[in-house]
Amino acid sequence: MNAGLPSAADGEALRTRLELEAESAGYHLNPDLEFTRSLTHGLLVNEGRYGYRACPCRLATGDAARDRDIVCPCDYRDADLLDWGGCFCGLYVSADIQEGKTSLASVPERRPPAAERTMAPDAPRLGRALSLPVWRCRVCGYLCARQRPPAVCPICKATSDRFEAFA
């Protein structure tokens, strides 16, 4: 099932890239380099296994539709950053943790069990007509009014399949 494992250098290259992306969008990577490199390496291992970067700290099924909410950055990152100062894995952290003012402890799992997961609603929910549908990025909450969601979220870089119809 593994087509050649990624190297440590690959993990570091991805860490550097994600750090740039994160900082440009107001997010922060965990400053513990060894820890963070190990996670980005795990993301690459999962990309080799499944074809997408499933969360390294969660069990992926290999079925893209069922794993969509845990493709990194997952649907739960922003809520965990608010409540705990870090995402479930500890890859993304709050500014306070990045600056060493507080430290990150174990973050409880907020992903609901499979049976309780809500699929992205695909029909507008507002009663009144809008001139365009409104799309919401499930990762960061970005909203936009246009015919189709953008290919890539301009805020958090999530792909268009992470958008749901909002209104």
Partner: peptide, 28 residues
Amino acid sequence: GLSTCVWCKKARQLLEELGAEFDYVYVD
């Protein structure tokens, strides 16, 4: 545990430091 998970790595390291006997399974 999961082979890709850093918290799992830390937990296993601690078990080893404590000298505990344990069975393990990496579910992924």
